[in-house]
């Protein structure tokens, strides 16, 4: 095979003639070995698929394609000349019902809001960025000293009022150590009895145990409905087989109804099993 590229001609390290294998469905595989700049032997496999696409064009168009060039292009070779034609970077035409007006409006409103936002220096409260504060060296060190002095003083409300009348929070925050969210505000959130159960436990809930495997949700509903309106019924099922796991949670709207249900259903014989009914653990009263 003839090397068509001058770059290939120069390197004499072509170990062997490229091996060309054409397989069915027109894919040509060219395998060659070369020694690269690091002196290592590399195998280069190229797969080339050629596909002939036939396109029908107007007869006159086909004829015009054969025209000889003229004027400044006279005697130039066929094909586009890189000095007069080039392919540019990608541009996009995204057609949409509302055009780009909306995006622009948003852009404008964003700019407006940014323009109206005040820039405030943390050190001297001037109308510039903190980094550009002319008093950065003086005020910055003063603040560090006062902040250090405050630390031993317990909570030091008097001291902080005296030294940081500037930005309440912002100046001190960079000195403070990290506190996990659940420990903030004196760990008050930790003590809250029901940490975010999404409001589902607002309703009094009872737990039914020792249900039979054949129990379905409508069965539980029919069982519990006589005691009052139900807020929610949850029947624990095996996630693959859908067989009841033997227990269920039932929420009532009122605790009296729930209590009546517990009284009646605890020890009730249902489907040849003795049911257990009690307050669900988080609902102990």
């Amino acid at each position: 095979m003839v090397n068509t590229s001058w770059a290939d001609d120069q390197s004499e390290e072509v170990l062997n003639v490229p091996m060309v294998v054409s397989d069915q469905d027109g894919v040509k595989v060219i395998v060659e070995y070369k020694i690269n700049d690091d002196g290592r032997k590399v195998k280069i496999t190229r797969k080339i698929k050629t596909k002939t696409v036939q396109e029908k064009v107007n007869k006159s168009v086909a004829e015009r394609k054969k025209w000889a060039k003229f004027g400044e292009e006279k005697d130039q070779p066929a094909g586009p000349n890189s000095s007069t034609a080039s392919v540019t970077e990608q541009v996009f035409l995204k057609l949409s019902q509302w055009g780009e007006e909306k995006a622009e409006e948003e852009d404008a409103s964003l700019k407006e809001s940014l323009a109206s936002r005040q820039i405030l220096c943390r050190l001297c409260q001037g109308n510039h960025f903190t980094a550009k504060c002319p008093y950065k060296d003086k005020l910055g060190t003063i603040q560090e000293i006062t902040a250090a002095a405050q630390l031993p003083a317990k909570d030091g409300s008097a001291a902080s009022a005296a030294t940081s009348p500037m930005m309440p929070g912002v100046g001190g925050e960079k000195k403070r150590a990290y506190i996990p969210p659940h420990l903030r505000d004196g760990g008050s959130k930790l003590k809250s009895p029901e940490p975010s159960r999404g409001g589902r436990d607002e309703y009094p809930t009872i737990r039914l145990t020792n249900l039979s495997e054949d129990t379905k949700e409508p069965d539980v509903q029919a069982l519990c409905r006589p005691f009052g309106p139900l807020a929610r019924v949850f029947l624990a099922k095996h996630y693959q087989t859908g067989v009841c796991k033997g227990y269920a949670f039932v929420s009532y709207y009122s605790s009296e109804n729930a209590e009546a249900a517990i009284k009646k259903l605890n020890g009730y014989g249902y489907d040849s099993l003795i049911l257990g009914a009690e307050w669900s653990s988080s609902d102990k009263k």
Binding site: W67, G71, E72, Q76, P80
Partner: peptide
């Protein structure tokens, strides 16, 4: 120009 590839057919001087 040829519109499909940007090849210049010629100039009219």
């Amino acid at each position: 120009w040829y519109a499909h590839n940007g090849e210049r057919l010629g100039t009219f001087d």
